[in-house]
Amino acid sequence: MRHSILLPVNATRPEQVIPFANLVRWGGAARLWQGQGLVLESHQIVNWLAGAGIRVSAGFGVSLMPYRSPYNAAVEARSVALATGHEVVAGYGPGSLAAQTCAMGRPYAGQLTACREYLTIVRDLLDGGISDREGEYFSAKAQLLPFHRPEVSLGLGVLRERMAGLAGELADTAITWLASAAYLEEVLIPALRGAKERRPEEPAKVVAYVPVALAGPDRDREKLLRATVGGHIQFPHYQAALRRAGIRITGDGGADDVRALVDGGIFLHGTAEEIHQRLDAYRAIGVDEVVLNVTGVAAVHGPRAAASDLYELLKAAP
């Protein structure tokens, strides 16, 4: 199982990303992951790093579909692969209903249908062919300027079993978030592996984002957890996925939520060795890559502390 890192800051200057990219170059991390860029656009950050001579493997998990057409998504993913010379995992997801409404005026009526159409068109384009499809949400009659096929793996963000089944059918990688090892083993991975259209010799890989923080005398676990996942656990679709895993929360990030998320294996807090002992559960069930998420440490204690936590965790990795 590989250990990667999530960029833990919303960078406002690309130079702020360099210490974290260097953890991929020299610190033992397999890949630098980013979510949807909120200030600087995520793909542009990686291309800037490549232009500065820092070429690292990148993952995007997830880029929100309402913010880019499938054609633009394919161009962005190919651009990063060509600029870096490394494999790119280009992960997409529909986002929350609120994000869909903000970007498009209304949400997708069929989330799975929208994801299916989107990924199929992006796959067509990255494979070098003409995508000639008429869909309910996404249509295309287009082809990228011919060039050699880039090293891009398509990912799909997964919270619940129906999306996991779709990822197993269409994607190269299922990207999970706020999913404990137990929930992956009992719910998501069986749905992923049970996809009927997938060739069994090429199963989709599993990437798990795992919120973590090292313990210390100045570390407030409740504050760190709220800063890491507090925004997400307010959304109904995340709460529904957590309930499916047997974890009931209010969404306010209070002491009861903290206890439930820690006890449920969602947020890992302790020494580097203790955290890796908990991560062994992901290895045991066949997760291919864990993405260490220390955004809470960065928010509460600053980017330098976040980089230090990541370095210690990577150094302690088995």
Score class of each variant (00 low, 15 high):
157 G>F: 06
25 R>G: 11
103 A>D: 01
138 F>R: 03
119 L>N: 04
177 W>S: 00
308 S>T: 14
121 I>A: 03
292 L>K: 05
59 G>T: 02
8 P>Y: 10
15 E>G: 15
174 A>C: 09
139 S>F: 09
243 R>N: 08
305 A>D: 15
238 Y>P: 00
193 R>Q: 14
178 L>P: 06
286 G>E: 13
206 V>A: 07
307 A>M: 01
170 L>R: 07
301 H>G: 08
281 A>N: 12
241 A>L: 00
25 R>W: 01
275 I>V: 15
115 C>Q: 12
100 Q>F: 09
89 V>H: 10
294 V>P: 00
6 L>Y: 04
171 A>H: 08
200 P>A: 13
202 E>Q: 12
93 G>L: 02
151 E>W: 03
150 P>K: 08
237 H>C: 00
149 R>P: 13
13 R>Q: 13
69 S>T: 14
291 V>I: 15
72 N>P: 04
118 Y>D: 08
229 V>A: 15
126 L>G: 09
267 F>H: 00
176 T>I: 03
214 L>F: 13
290 V>A: 10
164 A>K: 08
22 N>I: 00
136 E>Q: 15
157 G>Q: 06
163 M>K: 03
291 V>H: 03
52 A>H: 14
250 T>V: 10
236 P>Y: 04
225 L>C: 10
47 N>D: 15
130 I>A: 14
31 R>S: 04
274 E>I: 02
183 Y>H: 13
14 P>G: 05
309 D>H: 10
30 A>F: 12
11 A>K: 01
103 A>V: 10
24 V>F: 00
273 E>C: 09
